[in-house]
Design a binder for these strands. Structure first.
Lengths: 76, 76
DNA sequence: ATTATTTATACCATATAGGGTATAATACTT
DNA sequence: AAGTATTATACCCTATATGGTATAAATAAT
């Protein structure tokens, strides 16, 4: 799971449109779009502004780690 | 544990200086410094360039989660 | 099929992140 | 203490991320 799909997930679960999410997070609509399209050169603080809405924040993870989707479709 | 101290940790354990880390990561020295000083408006891809050296990458974490420091001074 | 809603693409403008470098301050070593 | 290595601060410059807006494409609803 990468960041972009993580956000899309959270957003659709919350039933928000991109404009709504942008507004609630206090970022531009453009930003939300680039975020959901996997742009890598985003500013960390802006990403966090969005994640905070869902109770998340960016942090260092071991490179292989299967992200934050606890007890769900676990391989073993 | 926040990102800046995480990096400082990893760096000192690796016995690298800031210039050495900058060079190995392919980022400017300035960047390493701002990173270690907790600047929040960093670019995600650059942060990842550095983290990759240590086998980490940025990803969404639940906001309270105690980061990546597995089995160490665990509360319970 | 039409219309309405949502998302994607393309452009312009501005603020600023990042590189570089030079100097200052701190931390080690002897 | 003096000298060396490391880190911090301050400046200039360029590239670019972000916001805004306008249009196009896609999706959903009727």
């Amino acid at each position: 799971m990468n960041l972009s799909t993580f956000i899309k997930q959270k957003r659709s679960v919350s039933g928000l449109t991109q404009p709504e999410l942008a507004e609630k997070a206090g970022v531009g609509l453009r930003f939300i779009r680039e975020l959901e399209q996997g742009k890598e050169t985003l500013r960390l603080d802006k990403v966090n502004q969005v994640l905070n809405l869902f109770g998340y924040e960016m942090g260092p993870l071991k490179s292989d780690q299967k992200t934050a989707n606890h007890r769900k479709d676990a391989k073993s």
